[in-house]
């Protein structure tokens, strides 16, 4: 296995006195899609939001252990630079109430452009990479809120791509979409992984099996803290799981 892009070491997260994640150590391989699955409430989303420190927005959250990006501790990084490198797409599409263009240009505008790059070119490149360009190229000034749900979600992906991240976190990106829009997103993921490392949370096991290269299975223990039960290549997890709890879960015996 190549050098991991991100890794967590003995990572724990607490809401006040409640331990929500229990000592998770896991590697995120580069240019692969890693899926995180598990029953609802097991801490999948919380774990995902640990990679770009979004949990810090919640008062009373405390963490122990380490999270590394390219070998560097993300807590020693500036949070703004971290989130620039580790982008995120949310469960429900959340475009800003601005035009399509302004949504994609938002990140580059705040971070500044690389020398010699034009904003228009970057917006076009990002929209193309998110497979949305052909549908919106004639009217980039239209409000983003007028797009369909699936288009909005691809716009949010384009918006994340425009800041040129290394890692993209996706929190059930298709759960609010219809099957056709979902399919489009899944196809998009396959092309994106050539250039990006993707971590995706999904409650849909078929989706995890279809799109991901690696799968992590999280489950809460007796004290309702999320634990990493098993992590490995997706094929192995879904065909020959080592842990009986994983087998129970993927065969639909609980959760």
């Amino acid at each position: 296995m190549p050098e991991p892009r991100m890794r967590t070491i003995d990572y724990c997260l607490y809401y006040g006195g409640f331990r929500a994640l229990n000592s998770i150590s896991m590697d995120i391989p580069p240019n692969m899609i890693t899926a995180i699955i598990g029953p609802s409430g097991c801490g999948k989303s919380t774990f995902l939001r640990s990679f770009n420190r979004m949990n810090e927005l919640i008062p009373g959250v405390r963490v122990t252990g380490k999270v590394l990006l390219d070998g560097e501790d993300i807590f020693s990084l500036d949070v703004v630079s971290l989130r620039r490198k580790v982008g995120m797409v949310f469960q429900r599409p959340n475009p800003f109430p601005k035009s399509i263009f302004d949504n994609v240009a938002y990140g580059p505008r705040i971070h500044g452009l690389r020398k010699g790059d034009s904003l228009a070119a970057l917006v076009e490149r990002s929209l193309k990479a998110a497979a949305l360009w052909d549908e919106v190229k004639d009217d980039l000034q239209k409000s983003a809120l007028s797009l369909s749900g699936g288009q909005q979600q691809r716009l949010c992906i384009a918006r994340a791509l425009a800041v040129e991240p290394e890692v993209i976190l996706m929190d059930e990106p298709a759960s609010a979409l219809d099957p056709i829009a979902t399919l489009k997103i899944e196809e998009l993921l396959q092309t994106l992984k050539e250039n990006y490392t993707i971590v995706i949370v999904t409650h849909n096991m078929q989706q995890a099996a279809r799109v991901s290269d690696f799968t992590a299975f999280l489950l809460m223990d007796e004290s309702r803290a999320g634990n990493l039960v098993e992590f490995g290549p997706t094929k192995q997890i879904f065909t020959t799981p080592r842990d009986s709890r994983t087998e129970d879960y993927i065969s639909g015996r609980f959760g």
Binding site: N52, M54, L57, V80, S81, L82, R83, R84, G87, M88, F90, R92, N94, P95, F96, P97, K98, Y106, G107, R109, I110, H111, C156, R159, A160, V163
Partner: peptide, 27 residues
Amino acid sequence: VPEEYRQGSLALGATRWETLRRVTVPA
């Protein structure tokens, strides 16, 4: 203003002030 707007902006690496000035206040 929906919390998603703020989160979306922060996740792109905007500072709280940039989020406020460019997303929350305009909304």
